[in-house]
């Protein structure tokens, strides 16, 4: 599996007075097994970008290759692309519609041509994978809590057995425990099921603990692209575009200024704690 974006541009409302260049010359590659964080403030183009990955929006110019095939080629099967690149939108309320959870999760697999029986197996496995308690399988999706709805929404996409899972702000509106549960689930899908993950977020702290790679977007362009350590090293640059490094990075810098020999590239809490304990006399 690989996705390559080659000089992708996208312009909203072309030819009118509110013409906006939402994506500006985007090129990068997503490799099999990646865990990518896509960061940017509202309006930076990150949501527009992910909608290109499964062909919901068509680039104004440029190419996207999935496993070496150009998805804009005539006769390319976009439906099969959408089953391979699963996109979970921010609000589960936008996709839940069936009378019970199980039927709702069957919707995706049935659309891509699975038989009733196959779809049910896929749905059952997906609901198990997102750890939804079995007693909730046959209740109305509208009666679930926010966190449960989000699980069902993820299961609805997982049931199509995607190779890549793109999650747009999966933790918005959840309380801290709900957030940790969903992010933990996403990590597990990556580690155990081997699914490539693209996590769209504006929270650096959320992302720093989980992802291997960060792409920072600003004004439709890729502003930075690197490991969390590389990206957070440029904290002041991030602040200029309305973002920030995780709080611990700033603490490490302040301690370094105060003379302690701490690791200023620490981005997660445990790294920071290790580094501080190594730098002070107890």
């Amino acid at each position: 599996m690989s996705i390559i974006l080659d000089h992708v541009n996208y312009i909203y409302s072309r030819g009118t007075s509110d013409e906006v260049k939402a994506l500006d010359d985007i090129s990068f590659e997503i490799k099999d097994g990646d865990f990518i964080g896509l960061i940017g403030h509202t309006g930076s183009g990150k949501s527009t970008l992910v909608q290109h990955l499964d062909g919901l929006l068509k680039a104004t110019s440029g190419h996207i290759y999935y496993n070496g095939e150009d998805i804009y080629d005539k006769g390319y099967n976009l439906k099969s692309l959408r089953s391979k690149v699963g996109l979970v939108f921010q609000y589960p309320e936008h996709q839940l519609f069936e009378e019970d959870v199980f039927k709702d999760v069957c919707f995706g697999p049935k659309n891509i041509g699975l038989t009733e029986g196959e779809a049910e197996i896929a749905a059952y496995q997906a609901l198990k994978a997102v750890k939804l308690p079995e007693e909730l399988f046959y209740v109305s999706p509208f009666d679930l809590s926010g966190g449960q709805k989000r699980r069902v929404a993820i299961a609805g996409v997982l049931a199509m057995e995607p190779e890549v899972l793109v999650l747009d702000e999966p933790t918005a509106g959840l309380d801290p425990e709900g957030r940790d549960e969903i992010l933990g689930l996403v990590k597990q899908l990556h580690d155990e099921e081997g699914i490539t993950i693209i996590l769209v977020s504006h929270s650096m702290e959320d992302v720093a603990d989980y992802v291997h790679h960060i792409i920072v977007m600003d004004k439709g362009r890729i502003h930075m692209n690197g490991t969390p350590k590389e990206v957070f090293w440029h904290a002041s640059d991030l602040e200029r575009i309305g973002l920030a490094a995780p709080r611990v990075t700033y603490i490490m810098r302040k301690l370094k200024q105060a003379g302690y020999n701490v690791d200023t590239t620490a981005t997660t809490l445990s790294e920071a704690a290790d580094s501080v304990l190594g730098a002070v006399r107890l």
Binding site: D175, P176, E177, G178, D180, E205, P246, R247, V248, I251, L269, S270, A272, A273, V276, L277, V280, L282
Partner: peptide
């Protein structure tokens, strides 16, 4: 707080962690 599905700011958590580990 954790029992109540909540969290503390990252700074507070780091301080807590350091304290548990000897500081």
């Amino acid at each position: 707080l954790e029992e109540l599905r909540l969290d503390v700011p990252q700074v507070t958590r780091l301080a807590h962690e350091l304290k548990l580990r000897g500081m």
